[in-house]
Design a protein around this nucleic acid. Sequence first.
DNA 1: CGTGATCCTGACCAATCGGTCAATAATCTG
DNA 2: CAGATTATTGACCGATTGGTCAGGATCACG
Lengths: 205, 205
Amino acid sequence: MTDAATPPMTRIQQKNRELILQAALDAFSANGFRGATIDQIARAARMSKPNVLYYFGSKDEIHKTLLTTLLDMWLAPMQQIDAAGEPLAEILQYVQAKLQMSRDFPRESRLFAYEILQGAPHLTEILGGGLREIVDRTVAVLETWMEEGRLARVEPRHLIFSIWSMTQHYADFEIQVRAVLGPGHDPYQEGSAFLDDLYRKLLAP
Amino acid sequence: MTDAATPPMTRIQQKNRELILQAALDAFSANGFRGATIDQIARAARMSKPNVLYYFGSKDEIHKTLLTTLLDMWLAPMQQIDAAGEPLAEILQYVQAKLQMSRDFPRESRLFAYEILQGAPHLTEILGGGLREIVDRTVAVLETWMEEGRLARVEPRHLIFSIWSMTQHYADFEIQVRAVLGPGHDPYQEGSAFLDDLYRKLLAP
DNA sequence: CGTGATCCTGACCAATCGGTCAATAATCTG
DNA sequence: CAGATTATTGACCGATTGGTCAGGATCACG
């Protein structure tokens, strides 16, 4: 029922759409929407520019497809917070999962960073809609834990902001992080320990 | 001795260069370097495009001038950390100063965010040079405090990253912050309290 | 007042961009 | 194999972009 109306895709379509999306993720995450060109995407995907436009009607459509496709994956870790679990452990696990996503998927992190910086022209409806609901659900869990005295009282939404900003910082500003740390450092390993320490101290009841 | 070789500027030059830089800050911080156009800057500064190029030789030069001019102001709060002061109070004051800068100068925050995201093509020498020295000086102070037992032991550089990321998050991702919080919230006021709480718990010896 | 330096702009240019189109090549289906 | 569908591309287009240039307006100053 989910894909009833969509015509089936040929093998070539699946392969080429995926090729284009991968090339576009490279381009958009490196240069932003306006900085990336269809030519650049086409070259990276080893095909001609008109062929890229044959699979996606416009540059905007590629970008929008990327954002909507990756948003679920990007928000997945937060939805895995288990209300029945041990509060501090659940949150620490979420923090680590988010940090690993920054390490393993920095392109995705930068894609969203550009989009939000730009004012989220392609995500406004999601920002005010789906995202807020997901956050609200997590906030409800956090507040329950706090009322039960199993977690220190902090503003739950700002707690979430802090997790997002600090973990994604390692991906979005990686160049700055590496420049400041200098060679011979593993930002993600050190950051992991730092964040673990930080949230233990902040949230211990 | 600092401006010995530079020819003196006429009143008109000072006024128009400032006008252009303000307009350019608007444009670059809203759309990024590539997204901003000289035409747009010229219109906002109420002058013709060639006249903008008369004062700044190229789009790149405007951008570079902005970055280098604003970098000092942007890093100033960190240099005001006083090694002779009370450790926790000094850091809390720095955090609050940084948060206020996000509130009062969001355009500057976004300008740097774009630049670092892009890979800092215009700041590479500064990232590896001046910035690192400034950070190193602050790190030395922090480490002294920690060794004296006046501050909890944490990785000082990651402590600085955390301050940068969380405070600038309120400026760079303001749209997302407001979308998640919903109407009737003052992100900066709430964030101020949250960050104060967080760093007290993290850094209390 | 006049004259040289500074200031300003319309018109223009080459390059690049997103996107179209007609024609060709490859693939699938009976 | 035949015919239809799908896939692919070179050539092209209008719009926009960063930047140039020649000439005119304005200003500072003796």
